[in-house]
């Protein structure tokens, strides 16, 4: 079977009397010829890497390579332990964890792309916070990863999970939807409620542009991971409470794709428009990469379609597509 529509997944899960996570496990076993135990063991290792990144980024301040960002996961973790926050500390923990993982990622540390590296904080943020709540067993969290995988497959196949193709909504939006649906199933919700959680979470992410300052996966990516962890949890709670997504989740996914295609290239992971194009955004780019890199980055614009004059970094000369030198 192909993962292209949530309503099909929901129907099949109901027909087989299983959760969406269990359906994913069955299909993965059918497709790969591996046993369910092998798949669960591999997924458990993914969860371990996710947890390691959470612990690394909260235990100590992780600074990114550029020096623009860093230490916020550790900072939030220390703050929530004072018990003075507006958001309950157990909830705010998910934000701290998501920030931590995103900082580890920006520092070229080891993470699991869920579904992408730029959005890798959200799923570990909410799931490791759920683990630390003491209410769920590790095996249940591994199953929740399979729920998240099924949702991500639908979005990836019928829309996009690439910021360059669909903007930040395709990355952080997808991760938020995956996390929301995973939490619903973790809490014992129905496949329909998973669908509504996805719809609700995605609707709150539509239109998010991908505008990383200096092209770095730092500003605004890290903060968005932290804040969208809370969005995911709230969407899950709304769906569990019986709130429905009036626009069916599959239509929300379809419109995510439409909006992504309508976004100008400057707002799709080119580091040109949006926050990247602000005076401070441009100054930071200059500061990180300096003059030499700025010149190197000043290659042909998209308008210069016929131009093939490359700016070469330390190597051979000119190039034209097709010549195998």
């Amino acid at each position: 079977m192909a993962f292209t529509h949530l309503h099909e997944l929901i129907r099949m899960a109901n027909e087989r009397g299983v959760t969406i996570g269990q359906l994913m496990l069955e299909v993965e076993a059918e497709q790969t010829g591996r046993t369910k135990e092998e798949i669960l063991a591999r997924m458990a290792r993914q969860f371990d890497v996710m947890e390691e990144a959470v612990r690394k980024g909260t235990r100590e301040p992780v600074m990114t390579r550029s020096g623009i960002t860093g230490g916020d996961g550790h900072r939030m973790h220390a703050y929530l332990q004072r018990g003075q926050s507006f958001v309950h500390p157990d909830t705010l923990r998910a934000t701290a964890y998501a920030l931590a993982v995103s900082e580890v990622n920006a520092g070229m540390g080891r993470i699991v792309a869920t579904p992408t590296a730029g959005s890798a904080g959200i799923l570990p943020g909410v799931l490791v916070a759920a683990l630390d709540s003491g209410r769920y067993r590790r095996e249940e969290l591994v199953m929740a990863l399979l729920t998240a995988a099924a949702i991500g497959l639908v979005i990836a196949n019928s829309a996009s999970i690439s910021g360059a193709a669909g903007g930040c909504q395709a990355e952080v939006g997808s991760a938020t939807a995956m996390a929301a649906g995973a939490l619903v199933e973790l809490a014992g919700g129905t496949p329909e409620q998973v669908g509504h959680a996805v719809g609700l979470a995605l609707k709150n992410s539509l239109g998010l542009v991908c505008d990383p300052v200096g092209g770095l996966v730092e500003v605004p990516c890290i903060v968005r991971n932290g804040l969208h962890a809370i969005t995911a949890m709230t969407a899950a709670d709304m769906a569990l409470a019986g709130v429905r997504s009036v626009i069916p989740p599959d239509e929300v996914i379809a419109v995510l794709h439409e909006i992504g295609k309508d976004m100008p290239v400057s707002l799709r992971e080119t580091g040109i428009g949006g926050l990247a194009g602000t005076p401070t955004g441009k100054a930071l780019r200059e500061k990180v990469f300096g003059d030499r890199a700025a010149r190197r980055n000043a290659g042909p614009t998209l308008a210069e379609a016929a131009c093939r004059e490359p700016a070469v970094a330390g190597g051979t000369g000119e190039s034209h597509r097709g010549d195998a030198s």
Partner: peptide, 16 residues
């Protein structure tokens, strides 16, 4: 097609 296309790869950052 695979769950590990979405929950993965395990990688060094910053961008998948």
């Amino acid at each position: 097609q695979s769950a590990f296309d979405i929950i993965g790869p395990v990688m060094v950052g910053p961008s998948s």
